[in-house]
Design a protein around this nucleic acid. Sequence first.
RNA 1: GUCCCUAUCGUCUAGAGGCCUAGGACAACACCCUUUCACGGUGUGAACCGGGGUUCGAAUCCCCGUGGGGACGCCA
Length: 463
Amino acid sequence: MTVRTRFAPSPTGYLHIGGARTALFSWAYARRHGGQFILRIEDTDVARSTPEAVQAILDGMKWLGLEHDEGPFYQMQRMDRYKAVIAQMLAAGTAYYCYTSREELDALRAEQEARKEKPRYDGRWRPEPGKTLPPVPTGIEPVVRFKNPTDGAVAWDDAVKGRIEFANSELDDLIIARPDGTPTYNFCVVVDDWDMGITHVIRGDDHVNNTPRQINILKALGAPLPVYGHLSMILGDDGQKLSKRRNAVAVTDYDDAGYLRDAIVNYLARLGWSHGDDEMFSREQFVEWFDLDHITSSAAQFNTEKLNWLNQQYLKTADAVYLADEVAKRLAKRGVTVSNDAHLQNVVALYKERAVNLNELADAVEPVLVELHPTDEMKATHFTETGLSALRDLRDRLVAVSWEKAALSACIKETCAALGVKMPAVAIPLRVAVLGLPQSPAIDAVLEVMGRESVLARLNRFL
RNA sequence: GUCCCUAUCGUCUAGAGGCCUAGGACAACACCCUUUCACGGUGUGAACCGGGGUUCGAAUCCCCGUGGGGACGCCA
């Protein structure tokens, strides 16, 4: 049997980081076992679902590089199928009409809460042998409820949490179709997972309570049961539940913030799953190693500092063409137009080891690409009499030197010797003069990449 | 309130009864490297929630507490 997993978000917002991890694990599990990964959009909540949200999810998945093999399937397009199954269940007696109004339900719930009981439907319309049902009221369109078993228990071996068991007496008869005939979530999921041949349902922790109900429906339908694996949630940096107000939650926020997709994937993989002491691994390695046995069953707190570190590691080894592309894109957003050419790639390569994210890399690279003027304070501090004479001495040496790092370095050292000063006395004013900043990578490398013309022009601004 | 899940350094985690005087990573701190800022290197401090069992032996198994989380919708 080939493994078939699915990711089934509801399009009511962005693809958030928790959903992204769920998708990643489902994707990886399918890939690991040579199976299929299916994308299904659960859009039966017509009031809250939007096409923009669907697009945001698709964009997020694409950005992360999680490609689906089948779908996206839309539940709204499967209405006929759901309705057919409901009719079939009604006929088989595994579901029944319920005429209880919302008001009655609210009253029932209030009573139960007052008595400190778990709120649940009391089964007043549930047909039983020998039971007399209330008279059918006029003018009320009934909902359809699933006839849940009343005794015994439902249990399953959760792939991440182990054995979980619920007494059927804890479960009430859930509504599977609204008065207008549209099916509800728990029912659609069941029919979809069945029809789509899903073998492993990997989803968030918040669904464990739905699982026994879904299993009971599957059993009533005579459908095979998938393996369930419930992932615990991701908490924010502050240990609180993730919220849009306090945390970056949409995966595209991380793109905007300058994180590399591979770093995010690696970080997410490591958040809640482990392979011994391994911290950094490629996507391919992850797929090869991934299993359900090493998933943590307790909630994990998101740690931006560790993500930053990982991102930096990825940045250091990232391909220069790709980085140049990202940098150009980010510079363009602030009105600096550069093309992804050999020069940009060289500059990026020089700076990539000292940035933690792509935005910082763009910041760092910008002074090389466009002329920045040092602040008055910098000038006052660094363009002292000795500073300026060092720059003059150096400039004269740079005019004719062969333009490569070793020779440039030699020039700087000669200036140091000529003026009887140490390296920083020359290097720092030099940085301020050519970059407008007192810090940079090794200055000889910076000069080399900038080119003679540009360096001399910038130096002469102050001499 | 009821049900379900969960509990190892500040954080992510290793740990499948003896390999644990509990390992790694991030962060912190110290030192080293250094042409500035970073990178990097070396090292230090830092944890098995509490109480009972089971066992020759428990971070690991069981029970009870406590803390944390989730669910209890004609939302998904």
